[in-house]
């Protein structure tokens, strides 16, 4: 579950520090994509969950797609 991409990790920490929800959705979605590319299914679910939570918090339209992806993967109701 470690994030290997230092730039992405730094960007996430920065977005958290700024409470930038829109950026957090994008960055966690990107992190999930990177994890899947490396075959890290569990890490992908972890990052997708975070993207989904921040999308819900903002009322962001991306929440619908993220929910669908998590549900397909058996991770969400």
């Amino acid at each position: 579950m470690l994030l290997n991409d230092k730039d992405l990790n730094d960007a996430l920490l920065d977005a958290h520090a700024r409470c930038d929800g829109a950026a957090l959705i994008t960055l966690y979605t990107n992190a999930a994509r990177a994890a899947l590319a490396q075959g890290q299914e569990g890490a992908a679910d972890f990052f997708l969950t975070h993207a989904y939570v921040f999308a819900l918090e903002r009322g962001d339209d991306r929440a619908t797609n993220l929910h669908s992806r998590l549900k397909e993967r058996g991770r969400e109701e």
Partner: peptide, 14 residues
């Protein structure tokens, strides 16, 4: 209650 992140373990929200 809409979601419960990691409630079933990391990445498992149920």
């Amino acid at each position: 209650l809409v979601t419960t992140p990691h409630v079933g373990g990391p990445g498992q929200n149920t």
